[in-house]
Every structure is written in structure tokens, then in C-alpha cells.
Design a protein around this nucleic acid. Structure first.
Lengths: 329, 329
DNA sequence: AGCGATAACGCCACCGCTAACATCTCCGTT
DNA sequence: AACGGAGATGTTAGCGGTGGCGTTATCGCT
């Protein structure tokens, strides 16, 4: 910056001003500085800027995994709103483990982001403490809680799952089985199971609910195939399988086609998430659509407002969900 | 840090040392400092550390989009190797536009990462200049070029596509059509088309190659459905459709099932990428498998070695590809 | 006992930039 | 002509750490 200042024959302070708010310097001074920046190929050092101004112009985002396109859309929404405002997004993934989440929160907090975005509402005590003490806005998401750390953009996974069960019962299915991958740190999957159990208890009081789960492994279609096989072996009376994710449901649905199991006559199948594939499968997959991109965008808007010093009226935003009934039920 | 130093009754310098290399301080001093860190809930400020030490402990990663799980795996591989070494990954996506790539390179360079990872080998002159002048290692990937900026971990998209064509011809298909989404900044898709055209010219000299493309829109299965419809309308003689991506091919394959078009008897279909879905479709999708995760891990290892001051012998790593012949051909 | 080597720790300057305040210039107003 | 105000620019003092070097204590060896 000193080189630029010298080339433009101004002080470094004026260069700094020209870069952060071009209107705050005279027009021909600005032109000289811009020319000098180009000629010296100057690239600003944000670390120094951060240290001096106490604003990092970054937002930390913590997601369970990036391999799942549904969270990717949320991140895409988040960055699409934040980038034009000059904020960079620091992304970390936890692989659904709380230990890694805590380490990540600590590490990211060390970068002093101006805001946090995190998927989920359940964290370790330590992680929660750090998030609360950073002094910057925090958005939790993709779940629901009456008492968020700070801000919340989410929906009730349990309520969504209840709607799936209601739908199946309305269509005449009576012997439902829940199938899902429930990793230790995946509270959203747990909420979905809870929703299933609640609704099942409501519709079929006294009937033992059928549940088949795995607790580890990659979230791929093959896992859905394996869950389907366990359902057919352990609960052959099942007439509808409620999967915790579209990925699993898709694997199962395609397997049914290969096995000659007719969907939805022999077996109904539901998913969760409305992934790209859901509408294209034959038959189409009944599922819950989540406004994944909207969550990211809404979170970004809340963060922006708070980072710019404004108050936000609604600290909790329920983006809801939508049941999409397709051929698989 | 001053608070910690006071609580532990040492100088800040000793605290700093304890944090960056615990063995460099006495054992009971270390214990006092660790206790003080916990009690004061101290979280290190990496911005200051970065400024003073001239190492940011970050790596910048630039990818076209995060919504595509195949790049996500590469990033997962990258972070899985870098995180244990204390490096954070700064992720930016370009949406396949060169203008945005340039802006992103500039912005990320301002964060002074200790290394760059970028997908693709074709960038604007300006972006290339910045990358070269940063003085830190740069890994380009997912493509191939004889003259990378610095390091390269990739494969030849064109060669992979030629293998697909060779395979189809060997299976007896004669009227091939290429179908793909080729966004302006997507040089990998262009390479795939080039590979198709080369192989087609080799097998069918003098025959006009059939090509159907779109240049914009989201990369979703619906786009594959639309491409399939255009192929069937504009080139009804086609007996094999070579898609530039598994996403498109999957959409088309599922659509064929819905339309009653028999695959591979009436129409063969190939994809690219070996996405999760490819093996589960009925029939299975013939495609090119890319060691997506390996690319990220290998890139991370190269970066690490260079960031730790070592030289790397092989600056260019060809991870290759593998044709997976399945039922769709 | 004297010496040098080593380990443990402290002091100082500085990393590159910006907040806050000071200064200067140029107006329009009275 | 004197004055006040606004806009443009410069000066100063850090932001929170770390590199480099100096100091002190300890210990083994001659």
C-alpha cells in the first residue's frame, strides 16, 4: 500500500480510504490511485485490514458434510447473498461428529469471522459457549428450537415427518416402517425419527413402531438398498417405508424396480429433501421439499443486517416445508 | 493473550510459544499456560498471527460450483488432508464464469492463503498473473495441460471421452450423438466435446458429427431430459447418446424408462463422472469414473510439501480415469 | 572453580493496515 | 474582510500477535 501511495503521490491513508469507500476521496485523486493500484498490481492484505479495523469481512459456515447437495444449495444461497457485499465464506464440515464440530468452532472463531452460520441447533456446551461469546451474530438452521443461541432459520423436521405419516395413512397404508441413517451427531435425522414415532403412536396406539436404522457409513444409495433389504427381511408385512432421506429412498426405489417389487402397489416409499432425482424417478418419489437455498439466503440477510449494526425484528424464521405427493405413494 | 500471560505469570511471548510449539516451553510453565487459556477462555487471533508470522494457515480453493457432489468429494479430500495439519480451507465458487473466477482469485489472494487449489487449467490472463505472483504453491486440477501455472493434479477429459466413443463403437453403435451443457467457462465440458469429435472423426471419417448442447441453466436431470428430447427430434437416427455428465445421462435414462424407449436396445446412453446414482439405475449407466476424492487428497499433499518448504519431484500428477461398462450400453 | 553449551524465557520492533483526530483548502455568507 | 463549515488529505498510534535476539539459569565437563 505504501508503494501505491508513493506512485499516486498521496498518503497510505488516502489509498486505504479510496479502496474502502471511493466516494470519500477526490475524483482525480481516486483516478490516480486506481491507476497506481493497477500498475503496481497491488492486492490488498485483508489480514492487516482485519487487524486494524476489527472486521474480517468473513462469515464462518459449519455444515455436516459438503458431499450432500442439499446443504450445498444452502451454502450457495448464503454465498450468493454475502459475496456481493464483500464477505467471504469460510466453510467447515463436521462429518456429523460433535467433537469435530467443537474443534471447528474453535478454529473458525480464531479467524474472527463477523458472523456464524451453522446447521443444526444442538451443539456441545463448549461450542455453544464459544459461539455465544464471540460477540458476532450466529444463525442456526435446518432445525427448530424455541431457544436458539441467537438467530434461527429453520423448520421442524419432526413436523415434516408427521405430515409424511399422515399422508401415508390417508392413502390407506397401515404397516409403516421407518428406515434411516442416524449418525450420532445428526439431530435432524433423530428429529425425523421422533416425528415418525409420534405420528405412528397417534394413528396406531399400542402398535409397536417398526424402525430400521444404521448409525454410520457414507450417505449413498447403497445404504438405502441395504435398509430396504433389512426392512423386507425383518418386517415383511411392511406396506410403506418412510426413509429419512431421498438418497436412501432413491436407492430403495431403484432396487424395487430391479427386484420387480411394484411401487406403490406392493410397497410405498417416501423420502425427505426433494433432491433433483425425486421427480425423475419412475414412479416419482413422494417427499418433503425444503427451501434449501432460501435458508442460506435468509440466513445471509439476517447476518448482513446484524453485521451492519441494525437490529432484526424476527430472530426466528420458519421456512416451513412442503409435502410433494408423487407416484411412489 | 496478555490476559493469559498475566494469569500464567509469563510473558506473552511464552504464551505464543506454548501455543505454536508446546515443547519449546518448560513442562510446568506449559501446564500453567494451558490452565490460563482454559480459564480465560482464550481463543487465538489468527489474523494477528498471520500478520506477524506471514503465514495464514489457510488454503484457498476455487471450484465451479458446490452444488455438484463430484467437486464436493474433491474438496472433502482436500480438507481431510489439510485440516489435521492445521490448515483451513477457504472455498469460493465461480458458477462457471471467468469474470467471477477472476474476482474470486483477487479476493482470495487478498486473504494471503499459503496455497491455492483451483479446478480447471484455463483462466483469464489477469487471474493467471495474480496466481503466479502470489509466491505460494498453486494446484490446478480436473483437467490436463502440458504447462500448468505450478502444480497439476488432473486427467485428460478428452482422452476419457475418446474411450467412451471407442467403447460404443466396439459394442456396435454407429450413429452417436453428443449431448451436453457447455457453459462459457466450462473448459472441461469443452474438452469432452473435443474428445468426442476427435474420436468420431477417427471412426467415421467424413460423417458430420451430431452434437446437441445447451450453454446455460442449472445442471439438473431436467436438462438431460430436454437434451434427450432434442436428440430424438433433431437426430432420430441416433443409436447412442454420449452425455457430458452423469446428471444429464441419468435424467435421460429415467425419461427413457417413462417413454418406453428400451436402453440399450433402442438407444444406448453414457455418462461421465460415475455419480452415486450411475450404478443404481436400471440398467446401470456406463460412465467414466474419476478419482474425485483422490484429486483433492493428492493436491493437498503436494501443497503441504511445498508449504513446508520442501520441493516436489513430480509437479504433474495424472490420476487417470476408468471406463465402467454397464447395462446402458 | 571456571567455562561453554543448552534450555527457558523476556524485550523490542515490526507485520500492513485503519480509526481517530488534526490540518489544510476552498467556498459561501454576513 | 472575517468567519464558519464542509470536504479532502495527512499524521499518529495502535490492532494482537511473532521473529530475532538478548538475558538468565542450569548443568556437565575440564
Amino acid at each position: 500500500m505504501a508503494d501505491v501511495a508513493q506512485a499516486a503521490e498521496v498518503s497510505t491513508q488516502t489509498v486505504s480510504r479510496a479502496l474502502r469507500d471511493p466516494r470519500s476521496v477526490g475524483p482525480e485523486t481516486l483516478a490516480r490511485i486506481e491507476k497506481a493500484v493497477r500498475e503496481t498490481r497491488y492486492v490488498q492484505n485483508y489480514a492487516a485490514s482485519h487487524l486494524a479495523s476489527n472486521r474480517s469481512m468473513t462469515v464462518a459456515a459449519i455444515i455436516p458434510t459438503i458431499s450432500t447437495s442439499i446443504f450445498a444449495e444452502t451454502i450457495q444461497g448464503l454465498t450468493d447473498v454475502l459475496l456481493p457485499e464483500g464477505y467471504q465464506v469460510f466453510l467447515g464440515h463436521t462429518d456429523y461428529t460433535t467433537a469435530r464440530e467443537e474443534a471447528l468452532v474453535r478454529s473458525l472463531a480464531g479467524r474472527r469471522p463477523d458472523g456464524f452460520f451453522i446447521i443444526g441447533t444442538k451443539h456441545t456446551q463448549e461450542a455453544t459457549d464459544i459461539l455465544k461469546r464471540t460477540g458476532v451474530p450466529v444463525v442456526e438452521s435446518w432445525s427448530w428450537t424455541p431457544r436458539p443461541i441467537d438467530l434461527l432459520v429453520g423448520f421442524s423436521n419432526a413436523a415434516a415427518m408427521m405430515e409424511v405419516v399422515d399422508h401415508l395413512v390417508a392413502r390407506g397404508y397401515r404397516r409403516l416402517t421407518f428406515a434411516g441413517m442416524i449418525k450420532p451427531g445428526d439431530h435432524r435425522a433423530k428429529d425425523r425419527l421422533k416425528g415418525f414415532l409420534d405420528a405412528h403412536g397417534r394413528h396406531f396406539p399400542g402398535v409397536e413402531p417398526r424402525v430400521v436404522t444404521t448409525t454410520s457409513g457414507p450417505m449413498v444409495m447403497e445404504a438405502g438398498v441395504e435398509l430396504l433389504e433389512r426392512v423386507r427381511r425383518d418386517h415383511p408385512e411392511t406396506d410403506a417405508v418412510v426413509f429419512a432421506s431421498d438418497v436412501l429412498a432413491s436407492g430403495a426405489l431403484l432396487k424395487c424396480a430391479a427386484l420387480g417389487v411394484r411401487v406403490p402397489q406392493d410397497l410405498a416409499i417416501t423420502g425427505f429433501g426433494n433432491y433433483d432425482i425425486a421427480a425423475h424417478l419412475v414412479p416419482g418419489l413422494t417427499t418433503i421439499a425444503i427451501a434449501s437455498r432460501t435458508i442460506g439466503m435468509e440466513a445471509a440477510r439476517l447476518l448482513l443486517r446484524r453485521m451492519q449494526g441494525e437490529e432484526v425484528a424476527a430472530r426466528m424464521v420458519d421456512v416451513g416445508f412442503q409435502l410433494l405427493a408423487r407416484g411412489s405413494t
